[in-house]
Every structure is written in structure tokens, then in C-alpha cells.
């Protein structure tokens, strides 16, 4: 059992209930929240408690209904259908999102001010299976080459396939990010960094993302305000493909 599990056990059942209750209300600090999530991953009993308390929170916002503007509905449906098209058109060139994202970023602030960028959606990680497939393909490529480094507890690996013209950034055991911050991945291009999206590690601190095409000279991870930035502000770790 992990240290986390042990320390939670030491709290005793009553304390655990308080932690899970506060967790269900999103009233924990990030570190406490990560501790609870680690415990929930291994304890069906507490997971059931958390699920049932989450269900209870639904009642807390009953009566607060407010219809959002119709324009927002249009924006959302449009964004969703663009998202759907992006990974449902088989004829589309490999890794369609990266070039598109690049265009947006290079296009300057006029485009950046559009709703999508303003809400951080452009950089948000899509959890889509096509991307997973693309990632697996890079990892399995014959000419794949690995570059590895570490940052704090995390192991960071970039895998690059010149023949596929793309690369994958993998992190393991990345520390949970503090509230209001996000990790963001970057491709280092000759003319500057290009966002490869937010890195949202799972409970074990693992995440992976596709990097920009073959001309990338390296990769980096930065710490950004929630939702990500147009340009990296605090670079935590960088890797060179050389």
C-alpha cells in the first residue's frame, strides 16, 4: 500500500469521511484532493461514498437554473462539430490538429481573441482515440528515437519518428499541479515554441501528447495559468532532439 493510503488510514474512518465529503464538494486543496483521489483509486468503499455524495451535490444547485444565451449554444455546437469533424474524416492528413493549432497561434491575437482560444479550448487536451492511435503509431515506428530527462519526480520522454514526421511527449509521475495552473507541452521549432496542448496527468502523474511535425528541434514543458498560454512563461524542463 502506498504511503498515501497508509496516512489516510491513520486518519481513521471518521476523518476519511470528512475528507471524502470535502472532496465531493471540491473543497480540498490540490494536495489533499490528490491524496483522496489516490485513495479512491484503490478503495471501492470510499469510491462508493464519493460517488453517492457527488450525487447529493446535484441538489445543491437545484433552483439556480439560468438559461445561457443562444449565442453560446451556437458557439458550443459549432466547436463540438468542428471537434468531431477533426477526427472523423479519414481522408484528412495525419495529425490534423497540430498544423491547425499552429496556424492559429501564428495568426496572432486577432484569432487568438476568438472564443475558442480565449477559453483555452485550443490548447485543451482532447482525449480522442484517433490521437491515441497516432501516438501508438509513433511509439511503434521503426525509426523511433527516444530522448529522456527528468524533472523532480517525473520522467520525461520524447519519442520522435522522422519517417512519420511527428513525435510524442510522455511524462510519468509528474507532480499534481497546483490550482489555477496547468502544464503545457511545447514543440521547439526553429522559429520558436509551438503549443502542443495542455498536459493533464492522470492520477499517477502520467500523460502523453503528440508534438508538432518532424521539423521540431526539441520539446519543453512549462507551467502556465489554467487553460494555457500562447507562449511559454515558466519553462520547467526542455529536451533537444540531437
Amino acid at each position: 500500500m502506498s504511503e498515501t493510503g497508509a496516512s489516510l488510514r491513520d486518519h481513521g474512518h471518521e476523518n476519511l469521511e470528512s475528507l471524502v465529503a470535502a472532496y465531493a464538494l471540491d473543497a480540498l486543496d490540490p494536495s489533499e484532493s490528490a491524496e483522496v483521489e489516490a485513495h479512491l483509486a484503490t478503495c471501492p468503499e470510499c469510491r462508493e461514498l464519493a460517488d453517492s455524495l457527488r450525487e447529493t451535490t446535484v441538489d445543491l444547485s437545484q433552483g439556480l437554473e439560468s438559461t445561457p444565451p443562444a449565442a453560446l449554444r451556437d458557439r458550443i455546437l459549432e466547436a463540438v462539430s468542428a471537434d468531431q469533424d477533426a477526427h472523423e474524416t479519414p481522408e484528412e492528413p495525419r495529425l490534423p490538429r497540430r498544423p491547425r493549432r499552429r496556424t492559429v497561434l501564428a495568426g496572432g491575437f486577432a484569432l487568438a481573441a476568438s472564443a475558442l482560444v480565449a477559453t483555452g479550448l485550443v490548447v485543451a487536451r482532447p482525449w480522442r482515440s484517433q490521437e491515441d492511435k497516432d501516438i501508438d503509431e509513433v511509439l511503434a515506428a521503426d525509426d523511433a528515437r527516444e530522448y529522456t530527462t527528468t524533472w523532480r519526480s517525473a520522467r520525461i520522454t520524447a519519442v520522435r519518428s522522422p519517417s512519420l514526421g511527428s513525435a510524442v511527449l510522455k511524462v510519468e509521475d509528474l507532480p499534481a499541479v497546483t490550482a489555477g495552473k496547468d502544464y503545457q507541452a511545447w514543440s521547439k521549432m526553429s522559429d520558436g515554441p509551438v503549443s502542443a496542448g495542455l498536459l493533464r496527468p492522470d492520477d499517477d502523474g502520467n500523460a502523453r501528447t503528440l508534438l508538432s511535425a518532424g521539423s521540431a528541434e526539441g520539446a519543453a514543458i512549462s507551467l502556465e495559468p489554467a487553460g494555457g498560454s500562447e507562449q511559454p512563461t515558466t519553462v520547467l524542463v526542455a529536451l533537444d532532439f540531437s
Partner: peptide
Amino acid sequence: QSEEVTQEVYLEVFRQASG
């Protein structure tokens, strides 16, 4: 801000629905 967050939420709903 609420409109922005609402948009983020629904994109997440869409992308994570299989979860």
C-alpha cells in the same frame, strides 16, 4: 467568465463522454 467555463465544460463533456 461563466460563458467561457460553460463552453469548456461542454467540450469536455463531448470529449470525455465515453468515460
